[in-house]
């Protein structure tokens, strides 16, 4: 019998514990497939954040570190400097990366630290129960913005990819969406490119995923993707912001 799909080697046998309709599982799988395809399994290491994906350290079947909230890029820096033969990525949500960990991500990117960052943006804090994130959209209601995000009070959502793109050192920056099968195929290409550049030691690579949170948005999974398409994609435009390797063989 021919196998046409199976669990990537880079994932452990544990079942994901994410909510129904959550796209973390998709993002995990894309990373794992790329690790398999690039043959990085024995030299890969990931850093899990604080947030819903805190348990990522159990799901990837290579060495993993779990970092304090927002500190994953600093932890990854320490790992990479200590074990230059290993290839490191961080996996972070919007609260972790764009609020409490702003200094760490900006400075790791600015150093051109040899790592990949996978940034999952679903405009809300998931694990703690649906609080406002730095990427929460204007007028969007969350448990800590019950009357909607008021931009004259708390400011506008942060476009992190654009922020990173203002720095000189980063090698590759792309924002992708996980909202449709076609988007996921494009996202896979971005993940693989980031890890390929990582494997080749080219520098700092950054992929932002536009994702959903059906549970905390209070919308069913399919509708949540429609909601994200209508509301998030106009503000967070997908596309490659920078690719210093373009045209490089």
């Amino acid at each position: 019998m021919e196998i046409i799909a199976q669990r990537p080697k880079a994932l452990t046998k544990l079942s994901f514990t994410y909510c129904p309709g959550c796209l973390h599982g998709v993002a995990h799988r894309l990373i794992a497939e790329a690790v398999d395809e690039l043959g990085l399994n024995d030299v890969m290491t990931g850093v899990a954040p604080v947030g819903c994906s805190v348990f990522a350290y159990k799901f990837f079947d290579f060495d993993m570190a779990q970092a304090a909230h927002g500190r994953a890029p600093a932890v990854a820096t320490g790992i990479k400097r200590a074990r230059p033969n290993m290839h490191v990525f961080t996996y972070q949500g919007d609260g972790d990366l764009a609020a409490i960990g702003t200094a760490e991500i900006v400075h790791a990117a600015n150093r051109g630290e040899h790592m990949s960052v996978f940034f999952v943006n679903n405009a809300i804090y998931g694990m703690t129960g649906g609080q406002m994130a730095p990427t929460t959209l204007p007028e969007m209601k969350t448990t800590t913005s019950p009357y909607g995000r008021k931009t004259d009070d708390i400011g506008f959502p942060i476009r992190v990819s654009e922020l990173i793109n203002s720095l000189i050192a980063p090698y590759y920056i792309e924002r992708v969406s996980l909202l449709t099968p076609a988007d996921i195929i494009k996202a896979k290409k971005a993940v693989k490119k980031a890890l390929l550049y990582n494997k080749e030691g080219r520098g700092f690579t950054f992929v932002e995923f536009i994702s959903t949170c059906p549970t905390n948005w209070g919308i069913d999974p399919l509708k949540s993707r429609e909601w994200a398409k209508e509301n998030m994609l106009p503000f967070f435009k997908v596309g490659c912001l920078r690719d210093k390797g373009e045209g490089v063989e």
Binding site: A68, A74, V75, I79, A103, H107
Partner: peptide, 17 residues
């Protein structure tokens, strides 16, 4: 490091390695 916070977390990473 960019801060004391980052420095100790770099230590965490390198010690973990």
């Amino acid at each position: 490091a960019e801060s004391e916070v980052a420095a100790i977390n770099m230590v965490y990473g390198a010690a973990g390695a």
